[in-house]
């Protein structure tokens, strides 16, 4: 689908600018991409909880196989996945090293600069790092395989029951989708204004921090003014088009649980059950 490819490129631009990490959707149209976003979110939610029950090789192996298997199914090239993990690699390694020196269980394996490294420390450091890695991997699969608007639809649907408690679910989802729609527009505008200000000699890319902060003001003020004007006009246009809140509204984009979603859920439940059975109870 060329459509998503280009939106993905825009997300990449956003990532590069480091302005806002909205997502890093990679359109490969795999089975994971076509899954219902609600099911993906549910699975991730419970995965995050149940992985803390794993405490031996078998149970960890089960969770690892599930996450790695899922990753393979997405057909997303490894370099994109690795890129998504880059910021947390450091944390994973750091956690591992910290455990090496702090934990004092089992037998002493070696001495590093006079500090003893215990076998238990090696084990625990590896386990915690693995768990951390699996969590990040699985959650990053969500943004890699689900467009932001699908996530929005999923959130709206999952939060649906909260409507009974007067929680503004529809408004929240509309806000999210309008933000998504306007991010590229506002980015283009920021670019335009920053070029215009740069041509007037305002420089917010170099120089001391204080200077740069001061230079950002002539960028922000017109941006805000224009954003408010947009908001006003948009509200007017929405009203002219018959918008009157979530009541009595139908939806074009409909989420449907398909066979593949049920299959994914069943596999997940089996993995969790197996892990709960095989873990150590003592």
């Amino acid at each position: 689908m060329t459509g998503s490819l280009s939106s993905w490129q825009i997300w990449q631009v956003i990532n590069m600018n480091n302005l806002l990490i909205v997502g890093q959707y990679v359109p490969t149209n795999s089975i994971v991409h076509r899954m219902d976003p609600r099911i993906k979110m549910l699975i991730i939610f419970f995965y995050v909880i149940f992985i803390f029950f794993a405490n031996n090789i078998v149970s960890y192996a089960l969770f690892t196989v599930f996450a790695v298997g899922g990753t393979l199914l997405t057909k997303v090239p490894w370099r994109f996945i690795a890129k998504g993990l880059t910021p947390v690699w450091f944390l994973i390694v750091f956690t591992f090293i910290l455990h090496l020196f702090v934990t004092k269980e089992g037998t002493v394996l070696v001495n590093v600069f006079g500090l003893p490294i215990y076998s238990g420390a090696l084990e625990q450091g590896a386990v915690i790092s693995l768990r951390f890695f699996l969590l990040i991997l699985l959650t990053s699969l969500l943004t890699l395989t689900t467009t932001p608007i699908e996530i929005t639809d999923g959130v709206e649907s999952l939060l649906g029951p909260l409507r009974r408690f007067k929680f503004p679910v529809h408004e929240l989802a509309l806000m999210m989708s309008i933000s998504l729609r306007f991010i590229p527009t506002l980015l283009q505008e920021t670019e335009k204004i920053s070029n215009a200000q740069a041509s007037r000699g305002v420089d917010f890319r170099t120089g001391p921090f204080r200077e740069r902060v001061r230079a950002v003001i002539p960028l922000l003020v017109p941006l805000f003014v224009s954003a408010f004007k947009r908001a006003e006009e948009l509200a007017m246009a929405m009203e002219a088009r018959g918008y009157r809140g979530g009541e009595g509204r139908t939806k074009l984009r409909e989420l449907q649980v398909m066979k593949r979603d049920v299959a994914a859920l069943v596999i997940f439940i089996i993995v969790v059950a197996a892990a709960l059975i095989t873990r150590d109870y003592s």
């Binding site: 729609r181 006009e233 007017m236 246009a237």
Partner: peptide, 14 residues
């Protein structure tokens, strides 16, 4: 039905 001036500020959908 009404169409306004600014193409960007009346486009609601993604």
């Amino acid at each position: 039905g009404m169409v306004f001036q600014n193409p960007d500020n009346q486009f609601v959908g993604t």
